[in-house]
Simulated assay, not measured.
Amino acid sequence: MSGKPVGRQVAVVTKFQTEAVKPGGVDRRTAGRAAEQAVADMQVQVQQRVLDSLDPLVALLRQWQKEAPAAAVRGACDWAATTRDLAGLAEMHLLTEVAMHSYDCLDAVAVDGASMDANEAACFADALVFARQDACRGSDLMPYQPLLKDLETLTTLVIGRGAQAG
């Protein structure tokens, strides 16, 4: 192989650099505060979207029928995925975990033909409402391990029914 360089170096000038060299441009401290405010505003919007996505999911789970229409199951599955993803962005760790178990269970019902009764669906609805309170504001889920273990057991039970049905 020859000693010639394989690529070339390109100078990139960011908007911050351009604004910083202008007279009256933005200093680093002001830019940092503006960025922090923008992130805080976005965090509030994401949290509101989480709460908005949670209401339809809880309503569907509370009105669950053993032989739910396929459209209702797919809708619940979509709401659970949305809640799981948005809660992860908002760093609502307990809600993320509960929504993940809800999604796994609903996915087994939608895809594998597993069955879930109204009492089981109500357990997921209750867990989602509990997690919505946002008592867990960190990544320490240890106090909630019994709840998460029970949800995992319930999810495994429903998924197992899907394997038997298939």
Rank of each mutant, 00 (worst) to 15 (best):
Q47C: 13
L54H: 04
T96Y: 05
G166H: 07
L151C: 01
G75A: 13
L51P: 03
S139G: 07
G24W: 08
W64G: 06
A90W: 00
Y103N: 08
T153Y: 02
A99F: 02
Q45H: 07
A135H: 12
V26A: 09
A118W: 08
A125D: 04
D107G: 10
G160Y: 06
V98Q: 00
G160M: 07
Q37D: 15
M142G: 08
A121K: 01
S115K: 11
R33M: 14
C105M: 14
V26R: 08
E91D: 12
A81F: 08
T155S: 10
T155N: 03
E36K: 14
V39Q: 11
D27Q: 06
Q145K: 13
G7I: 11
D140S: 05
A59K: 09
G3L: 14
V58W: 04
K149W: 04
E36Q: 15
D104A: 13
K15Q: 15
A131H: 02
K149F: 04
L141S: 01
Q47L: 14
V50W: 02
A72Q: 14
G113F: 02
D150G: 10
M92R: 07
M42C: 05
D55I: 09
G25Y: 06
F16W: 09
R33E: 15
L54R: 06
R161E: 13
E91Y: 07
A125Y: 04
G3F: 10
A59P: 01
P5H: 09
V46I: 15
F16Y: 13
A131Q: 03
G7W: 09
K66T: 14
D52Y: 07
A40T: 09
M1T: 11
R137I: 00
G24K: 10
Q145M: 14
I159D: 05
N119A: 15
R33C: 08
V50N: 02
P143W: 00
P146R: 05
L51Y: 10
S102M: 07
D78L: 15
G75P: 05
G25M: 05
L141W: 00
D27S: 11
L154V: 03
E97N: 04
A108S: 14
V21C: 07
P5E: 14
C136H: 01
S115Y: 09
D41S: 08
D52I: 05
V129Q: 15
